[in-house]
Amino acid sequence: MESDLPWLAIGLVGLMVAFGLGFVAARFDLRQWKREVQESPKAYYKGLNLLLNEQQDKAIDAFIEAMQQDPGTADLHFALGNLFRRRGEYERAVRVHQHLLSRGDLPESDRQKAQHALAQDYLRAGLFDRAEAAFRALDGTPFATDARLELLGLYERSRDWRNAIEVARKLEASGAGSFATRIAHHWCEIAQEADARQRTDEAQAALAEARAAAPQAPRPLMLAGQRLARAGEHAQALAAWNELFALHPAAAALAAGDYASSAVAAGEVDDARARLTALQQRRPSMSTLAALLRLDTDAASRLARLRDNLQDQPTLSAAAALLGEHAKAGVPLTGADSERLAQVVAQRAKPQQRYRCAACGFEAQHYFWQCPGCHSWDSYPPSLIEDA
């Protein structure tokens, strides 16, 4: 028994040493962990503060420091990647989001968020093929609607109308709203491209799809009339435009010139004049007025129409048209015409008889040495707007 005592004492001493070392190590690790937890938010909030103060370079350094202290935090990666994108540093933003996607421990929600951020990086960088693939990879995720909206804009910019139609239909089916008019525009673009390649049947089919997508939309009716007029079918063109006039009087002015030409070709001048006159009374427009002048056969009628229009719609364009008609007909200006023209020119010249601040654009009738809007000194050029 006595011989075992030394060994027992040695074991107890070893156990106490091991316990002491473990306690010290635990205390050291605990302090280090606390210090990292405390330092990481400090760096993060420092970055946010710098960002709010528009010190983006310093904010990036702060976020990088925070990521180094806590490399597993996805939120810091997202903040840094978004900051890179805002600054136009798309390559660095791509690297940040690709790094996130390469992590095997990333939760699915963060993975989808990183995929969406990466798609936005590609889009802003002009890498449209990669952006398209990245956005399409978000089908079936909470980002699907946002991704389809981005894809729709991408396809429209690249004039990929059929893919745009496919995406717009998916958006409608998902309850994102009505895209009928937008789809009709896509089909109209396809029709115009087909006409340019002289594929008449393809253009006609596309135009029928546009009418089916949005029966009340003005553009398909306008294009239908223009196609019929080019084919020499002026009576049918007038019928298409009459429907446009009834449904969309505001857009009818866009077809007024073509309408007058087809009316002359079809021998329906009187009916066209009546319709265009009614349209001009409802929606005054220089385009409609020009179409009416084309239908008036004598100078006296055109001068009378211009005088009436100038009374109701005193625009510089109408004044110029009246002066031009007098010159063309060789008829001197009457006193009443001269007075009316002077009133119109004086009225329309007033907005140009002002001074404009070069710093903020504030306009004033009087010259200021200090701008009342932005308080800049010597920011007003010493000349009126019309003198520029």
Rank of each mutant, 00 (worst) to 15 (best):
A74M: 06
D75A: 12
L76T: 10
L76Y: 13
L76R: 12
H77V: 02
H77N: 10
H77F: 06
F78N: 04
L80A: 08
G81C: 13
N82W: 04
N82K: 10
N82C: 08
L83Y: 07
L83W: 06
L83S: 12
L83A: 09
F84T: 06
F84P: 03
R85H: 05
R86A: 14
R86V: 13
R87L: 11
R87I: 05
G88C: 03
Y90I: 06
Y90A: 08
E91M: 07
E91A: 14
R92D: 11
R92I: 03
A93C: 12
A93E: 08
A93Q: 08
V94Y: 01
V94T: 10
V94M: 11
H97E: 03
H97Y: 04
Q98V: 06
H99T: 13
L100S: 04
L100H: 04
L101F: 09
S102Q: 12
S102A: 15
S102M: 07
G104Q: 15
L106V: 05
P107K: 05
P107A: 07
E108N: 02
E108Y: 01
E108I: 00
E108W: 02
S109A: 15
D110L: 07
R111M: 03
Q112D: 08
Q112L: 05
Q112T: 02
A114Q: 03
A117I: 02
A117M: 04
A117R: 01
A119N: 12
Q120S: 14
Q120L: 15
Y122R: 00
Y122E: 01
Y122H: 04
Y122A: 02
Y122L: 02
L123Y: 08
R124P: 03
R124T: 10
A125H: 01
G126P: 03
L127I: 11
L127T: 07
L127Y: 10
F128T: 13
F128W: 13
D129L: 14
D129R: 15
D129Y: 12
R130S: 14
R130D: 15
R130M: 13
A131W: 00
A131N: 02
E132K: 06
E132C: 09
A133G: 15
R136K: 14
G140A: 12
G140E: 12
T141W: 06
F143H: 14
F143K: 12
F143E: 14
A144H: 09
T145Y: 04
T145K: 04
T145N: 05
R148H: 05
R148N: 07
R148T: 01
L149H: 05
L151C: 11
L152A: 02
L152R: 00
G153L: 04
G153T: 07
L154P: 00
L154K: 00
L154Q: 00
Y155I: 01
R157Y: 06
R157Q: 11
S158I: 11
S158E: 15
R159D: 15
R159S: 14
N163P: 07
N163K: 13
A164N: 06
A164M: 11
A164V: 09
I165T: 05
E166F: 10
V167T: 08
A168R: 00
K170F: 06
K170A: 14
K170T: 10
L171H: 02
A173V: 08
A173W: 10
G175E: 13
A176K: 03
A176S: 08
F179Q: 05
F179I: 04
F179P: 00
F179V: 01
A180E: 11
A180P: 07
R182W: 09
R182A: 10
